[in-house]
Nucleic acid binder design. Structure first.
Lengths: 194, 194
DNA sequence: GAATTGTCGACCAAATCATTCGAAGGCATT
DNA sequence: AATGCCTTCGAATGATTTGGTCGACAATTC
């Protein structure tokens, strides 16, 4: 029992990347296992089911996002101040959401279907948070690509753009718009401010 | 027989967007049909098979890319000139590739698996072209998001960055890097030049 | 009003999927 | 070297999904 918790985390991170690109349904256990260079059955030693992994991913991502926002926002000045408290209120409400998580969880969903499910049952606060989490998933990928000087800049500019997606008018969230939605945040943060 | 060719094109475009995000294998006929608001069986009136659609998509994308490059490159000046002929040479060689297309086509592939298959059988010319095609698929999505003033700018800056992905060192093309690869071009074109 | 063109629901065989299970490798303690 | 525990995994399985078919039936053209 050397590093069971560490391996769990590795699975969460790796699976999270796949989930965030392909969604829950299209992500296979084989794929997750292969990405981890691990036998598929071995994963079941650390998690009970695919849904179990997904839940862990969402919870984990929420936490990473919160931390990232907390520190990043401190490095930014005045005109963002209002947004700052705004985002924090939403952060708090995530705890509430995560309790309902199991109840709303059902098959056939991926990130965006998940949002649609919640949209009907819960208020806009939770919705915004979940959206943030998903955007974060995309941003994380981006941050891995560019080198650190870009990263710093991207974090700040993206944060500046966050207000927009938060208040986004409901867009058609069909398949062909999913990558678009993600890239939109990206663009808004980076292109807009220059 | 009013608009058979038009509907074929609609299928190609719509399916192309899904293919470029999820890859060949993960894209289902039901999904394509749903995106087109069309019965699944109806699609088979226009195409023989899923692979048939995919082939049409690749051919179509190659053509769109060629046209786009042809016009866009004309609007750019001197230091790109060498790249210009370079890209064109590659464009020519695509014809050759498309002839082999059916031969190399087999199950279990998506865009990147496809590239891997080709990597072993053909020279770097064809590889570069295919990569271009795939990047184009991603870029097209991006261009749909931003409005036209950004589009014009994005086309040019992205074109300037094209040399880089063309000569990219071989990166691990596993799942978690796929979106990264796409966004890299994006970033390189847009962030780099400002 | 018949022939042709186009759409679709229902269905199928084959493939894929999440999950289980037992065997066994590794490693410490006795 | 025998015991017991932690960990990994190949193989098997039952359920679901998937690409593709077919016949019925609209719609359009002649």
């Amino acid at each position: 029992m050397i590093n069971k918790e560490e391996i769990r985390k590795k699975i969460i991170v790796s699976a999270g990347q796949i989930f965030s690109h392909y969604g829950f349904k299209k992500t296979t256990m084989d794929e997750i296992a292969k990405a981890l260079k691990m036998g598929k059955s071995s994963i079941y030693y650390y998690f009970e089911s695919k849904e179990d992994i997904f839940e862990a991913v969402v919870l984990y991502e929420a936490n990473v996002l919160r931390n990232e926002l907390t520190t990043a926002i401190k490095a930014v000045e005045s005109p963002i101040e209002k947004m700052r408290s705004y985002v924090f209120v939403r952060m708090k409400s995530f705890e509430k959401l995560s309790n309902y998580y199991n109840a709303i969880f059902d098959k056939n969903l991926d990130h965006f279907d998940f949002i649609e499910t919640i949209r009907e049952k819960y208020d806009r606060e939770e919705l915004a948070i979940l959206r943030l989490i998903i955007y974060h998933g995309a941003r994380k990928k981006v941050f891995n690509v560019v080198n650190s000087e870009y990263t710093a800049m991207a974090v700040q500019t993206t944060l500046k753009g966050l207000e927009v997606p938060l208040f986004w008018k409901k867009k058609e969230m069909n398949i062909e718009n999913r990558l678009n939605a993600i890239l939109d945040v990206l663009f808004y943060g980076i292109v807009k401010n220059k």
